[in-house]
């Protein structure tokens, strides 16, 4: 790849990302939202977090479904957080369990 290609790509992606991150706050900021819109926003984290979890653990680079050591680790993290309420403990369990399973296999 040429140097010019690299810099062009960087500039274009930076502009696109900045525009995308600015768009949301420009649309919904500075006004009181109707209750129904606010209730949609309130459940947005549940939808996005769930999607990030499954795409991060159950989908491989080609978009195919696949479960590995990290899926086990993440599942354990969910269980630990459900019982203890500690995010940090859950993440540590996932990290250690995933690394351990990979070391064993």
């Amino acid at each position: 790849m040429s140097t010019a290609t690299a810099w062009t790509l960087i500039a274009a992606l930076a502009v696109a990302t900045i525009a995308l991150k600015a768009a949301g706050p420009l649309v919904t900021g500075g006004r009181t939202l109707p209750p129904r819109v606010a209730s949609v926003i309130a459940v947005m984290p549940a939808a996005l977090l769930a999607a990030l979890v499954v795409t991060g653990t159950l989908v491989d680079e080609d978009g195919d479904l696949a479960a590995g050591a990290d899926a086990v680790g993440v599942l354990a993290a969910g269980a630990v957080v459900w019982r203890t309420g500690s995010v940090l403990r859950g993440v540590l369990v996932a990290l250690v369990l995933t690394a351990a399973l990979r070391a064993l296999s």
Binding site: P45, A46, L49, A50, L52, V53, G56, T57, D70, G73, V74, L75, A77, G78, V81, V87, G90, V91, V93, A94, L95
Partner: peptide, 8 residues
């Protein structure tokens, strides 16, 4: 993913 699962 573990962090997102935890927050979820």
């Amino acid at each position: 993913p573990a962090f997102f699962a935890a927050l979820l």
